[in-house]
Design a protein around this nucleic acid. Structure first.
Lengths: 204, 204
DNA sequence: CGGATATTAAACCGATCGGTTCAGTTCGGC
DNA sequence: GCCGAACTGAACCGATCGGTTTAATATCCG
């Protein structure tokens, strides 16, 4: 479906040019002429790699979805005391969600997922679902289990993650405010962990 | 900017036709020819009401943003015991966020807010900010204050709201699952309130 | 270097785009 | 009924769209 016809010498240039234009203009707004110009290739070259605009779009954007997936939680974090580990986890998610890359990926995938269902799925699986699974894995480590009392780690992970996606994220998404400060990210992370622990920490 | 040139006999038809096409296709994907057809008016009529496609889009969509704003919290809710009131509030937000209208408004505004900054602002103010303010107003009622201990009602309201916007909402947004069941909505609401109260309820 | 492959620029195609024009028709109010 | 306002359908405009073609040129590898 989104497989290239072939890969030639300028394949990476095409991907890069396409990414830049699609991320800025969306699918409908991006013209193939503009993509070819930005990629510094001829349109014929572009069409020698991809059968059509849709295939190019899906190839580029689903690849970018995969860039957002994270590997396993680092051993450093797992070894920290639970409140500190949770803070580090929250902080890293809050920070990531507020990056230009994450914001624009989210916008683009929200906009296009009805027209390209496989994109919606790819985004969800490499993004939200992957994040969820990371936290669930952490919550099920022996250390976390010793200090937390959780009946349903899916719900707990979901809540923690959602408290990392705050009003500030919505403001950024809709262009109401500019860049976030470290103070804001720190505050959101601390408050998320505080509420999380209020519910799930074992009582002595 | 998005003020109509004039309002004639078929003005409402134009708004309705435009809404339907813009909501389905987005700004770039919607053609003026298609809008005129759906509205059962001639293109000339349409252009006699609005100077251009952008103006029509902004008029229609910012008006729809205003449809999502809510009035003050009902007196019934305010009179309930706090846990029950919070549950009713959470439940109504979870339900609303999962409606077809809210989902499609969110998608469209996310997609177009960079190109139309005033739309991003209108959406944020009539949507997320308005919801936030509703909850803050509730949290500051005498009854809620008597039972909750909250240092910062903005943060508390933000967290409650975010726990109403769960993984399920993301799944719906990206088209990964179908309609939500009442059980799911109920579960999300209960869990959100449980976590909220774990942190903010006064200890006896 | 030579040959095969990759790429190019320019032109093309049919279709659609947002916006404009206009003679004719319809509608509503007096 | 009359008249002015509103609306129409069809055609138009210049521009752009995604995709195609082709002779010429550039690149790479043995």
């Amino acid at each position: 479906m989104n497989a290239p016809v072939r890969k030639g010498r300028k394949y990476d240039q095409v991907l890069e040019g396409a990414r830049s234009v699609f991320m800025r203009e969306g699918f409908e707004g991006a013209s193939v002429d503009q993509i070819a110009r930005d990629a510094h290739v001829s349109k014929a070259t572009l069409y020698s790699y991809f059968p059509d605009k849709q295939s190019l779009f899906l190839a580029v954007i689903t690849h970018d979805c995969e860039m957002q997936a994270r590997g396993a939680m680092s051993e450093d974090i797992v070894q920290k005391p639970v409140p500190e580990a949770l803070y580090a986890i929250a902080h890293s998610f809050v920070s990531f969600f507020l990056t230009g890359f994450a914001l624009q990926m989210f916008r683009l995938c929200v906009a296009e997922s009805m027209r390209f269902p496989e994109l919606g799925r790819a985004f969800y699986e490499t993004g939200p679902q992957n994040a969820q699974n990371q936290i669930i894995a952490y919550l099920e480590t022996p250390r976390a289990r010793a200090e937390l009392e959780i009946e349903d780690s899916y719900v707990a992970a979901d809540q923690l993650l959602q408290m990392c996606r705050t009003d500030l994220l919505l403001k950024r998404l809709f262009g109401v405010v500019g860049d976030a400060s470290e103070d804001e990210i720190d505050r959101i992370s601390r408050e998320a962990v505080a509420t999380f622990l209020a519910r799930y920490q074992r009582r002595p």
